[in-house]
């Protein structure tokens, strides 16, 4: 028995040390410095976010909270006149209504970017972490009065995201422009930069990894939503911050291409199709 235990111990130790050495070698590989994009000083930009993380009956969505931070910090590198508004986390129904009603109008900001992340059902229902279990977007938007902003861009990072377009209320009342993390029939997944399992993200996305190491807090657990990675990849390939609606269209196309490349090159299973629409330019 002792010999057998010794053998197992030796075997496991060898495997762990070998793989740790491989990972250390990868981690220590000098990463290319991240080029800073140009900074836009022309427009007032605001960033609102509403994220559901702490579900009681399922795994918490830490990756989506990290995506919120990724988007915030990329916007900070793009726009000097960025206003980060209070972050809303795990809002029940009534508070969600209040948060949506208090989104800035066009008087307050030139570009309003809103990040919404939550668990969402196939029927396009937003799932709450507490209080009311879920609500459909048409019911929600039909019962509140949101201030209009022609240059509001809503980023919906949820499964079955573009399903919200089944009702015209989404684009009429809330989002003249939208980025969706997934198509109506798709799920969107969490990725992990700290575990090589399934996808060795630091090796496959060295620039994104370098940016994350530089910009994310030390206690970040390495998780991000798929949309967070795609947004970051598109950000790193964009030399000038999007200012006009046409710039946002180009950025949306880039996001879509990145998600398709991810599907072809890296993982079919962990990918979703980033899609959306951008309202025509405002004269």
């Amino acid at each position: 028995m002792r010999r057998r235990c010794t053998f197992f111990g030796f075997f496991l130790t060898t495997v762990v040390i070998a793989s740790a050495a491989i990972q250390c070698r990868c981690a220590d590989r000098p990463f290319s410095p991240v080029a800073r994009p140009a900074i836009s000083t022309r427009y007032r930009v605001s960033f609102d976010s509403i994220v559901n993380v702490g579900y009681k009956w399922r795994r918490p969505m830490h990756g989506w909270a990290a995506t919120e931070l990724i988007i915030e910090r990329t916007l900070r590198q793009w726009y000097s006149r960025l206003e980060i508004r209070p972050k809303s986390r795990d809002l029940p129904l009534e508070d969600l209504k209040v948060a949506l009603e208090s989104l800035p109008s066009s008087d307050q900001t030139d570009i309003s970017i809103v990040y919404l992340a939550s668990s969402q059902t196939r029927q396009g229902q937003w799932e709450f972490t507490r209080g009311t279990r879920r609500v459909s977007w048409p019911d929600l938007l039909g019962s509140i009065n949101i201030r209009q902003h022609p240059r509001r861009i809503v980023l919906l990072d949820a499964c079955h995201a573009s399903g919200v377009m089944r009702s015209g209320l989404w684009s009429d009342r809330l989002a003249p422009s939208s980025f969706f993390a997934s198509l109506e029939g798709e799920r969107t997944y969490e990725l992990n930069f700290r575990s090589p399992f399934r996808l060795d993200l630091p090796r496959r996305f060295p620039k994104a990894n370098a940016w994350l190491r530089e910009n994310m807090p030390a206690d970040w657990d390495g998780k991000t939503s798929f949309f967070g990675l795609i947004w970051l990849q598109a950000f790193l390939k964009t030399a000038h911050p999007p200012e006009t609606q046409d710039d946002w269209k180009v950025f949306l196309r880039l996001c879509r291409k990145e998600s398709e490349d991810f599907r072809i090159t890296h993982s079919r299973r962990l990918s979703s199709t980033v899609n959306g629409y951008v309202a025509p330019s405002v004269k």
């Binding site: 795994r59 969505m61 990756g63 989506w64 992340a117 939550s118 668990s119 969402q120 059902t121 196939r122 229902q125 799932e127 879920r134 990072d157 949820a158 499964c159 079955h160 993390a181 799920r187 969107t188 997944y189 969490e190 990725l191 399992f197 399934r198 998780k223 939503s225 299973r269 962990l270």
Partner: peptide
């Protein structure tokens, strides 16, 4: 837990 990626989908019923 360890091999299934977390996702943002609610229960489909």
């Amino acid at each position: 837990y360890r091999a299934t990626a977390n996702h943002a989908a609610g229960n489909d019923g």
